[in-house]
Design a protein around this nucleic acid. Structure first.
Length: 251
DNA sequence: AAACTAATCAACCGCGACATT
DNA sequence: TAATGTCGCGGTTGATTAGTT
């Protein structure tokens, strides 16, 4: 299949939108809707490609867009959802009314990623000074689990990790952030994450269409795997590695 | 005040998924 | 079933703004 390049026709405008263009687009969509983005600019009399129009509408002109800074609740929701969904910005945006995937992506890259990293490194150093637990690749845990060979100690975990080459880790990190098995994989957020103090109630932000257990256990997409006795050991080791042992959900 | 750097964010690009022919 | 068209998503870019020297 040969892709028709976007804006192949010369003469189509690119770059920032003028207020006049915005006005034309908004009034056209208000009157006619946006059934066919490809045909829309021609019908509306805009010298833009359909893609550009769609982007402008969805990211900026839509009436339900919420402008302004993200609240701490929103930021934490993003962090939690990112932990569960990875870089699926549209899926994250679907749970944040009035926010666009583009906006969320920008906030993540400019604020939250850094914030989380700083927070976690401080948390790690605190934890390691008390109880130094080596990092463990979840893959190791998974393999150990499937082989009926549970990782039972940090030492074992550590030695297994040493078999994973640095270059393979590096490749994974470069290829896909979702596969980053560093401490960022299991972020721990507490009050110190935020510059201002938050109450527990403020921090907890359940998603509307999930059970409470799913909210509390973001790894629950694998929950079916966790129902056998062996898998419970997997979960136990996982939480030990994460440095925390929450109340487990009832199965 | 000027030059430089860092941060921000709107917009673009390319790809994959899905629908239609 | 293959070819084609359209849409939506995620990654990236680059212009603008803010901060620093």
């Amino acid at each position: 299949m040969v892709r028709a390049p976007c804006c192949e026709k010369m003469g189509l405008k690119k770059g920032p939108w003028s207020p006049e263009e915005d006005q034309i687009l908004v009034s056209f969509i208000q009157q006619n809707g946006h059934g066919n983005w490809r045909a829309l600019p021609k019908q509306a009399g805009l010298l833009r490609c359909g893609k550009s129009c769609r982007l402008r509408w969805t990211n900026y002109l839509r009436p339900d867009i919420k402008r302004g800074n993200f609240s701490k609740e929103e930021e934490e929701t993003i962090i939690n959802l990112h932990e569960m969904l990875g870089n699926r910005w549209s899926a994250i945006a679907a749970r944040l009314p009035g926010r666009t995937d583009n906006e969320i992506k920008n906030v993540w890259h400019t604020h939250l990623k850094k914030k989380l990293k700083i927070h976690q490194s401080s948390q790690d150093s605190k934890r390691h000074s008390i109880n130094p637990i080596p990092k463990c690749d979840p893959k190791v845990l998974e393999n150990s689990n499937s082989d009926q060979n549970i990782v039972t100690s940090p030492q074992q975990c550590s030695s297994e990790m040493s078999s994973v080459t640095d270059s393979s880790i590096e490749k994974k990190e470069v290829k896909n952030e979702e596969m980053d098995y560093s401490s960022e994989y299991f972020p721990q957020i507490d009050e110190s994450f935020w510059s201002e103090e938050l109450s527990k109630d403020d921090v907890y932000c359940p998603s509307a269409d999930k059970t409470e257990d799913e909210d509390r256990f973001p790894f629950m997409q694998n929950v079916e795997d966790a129902r056998s006795d062996d898998s419970m050991d997997f979960w136990y080791n996982l939480f030990i590695r994460a440095g925390d042992m929450p109340d487990l959900p009832e199965f």
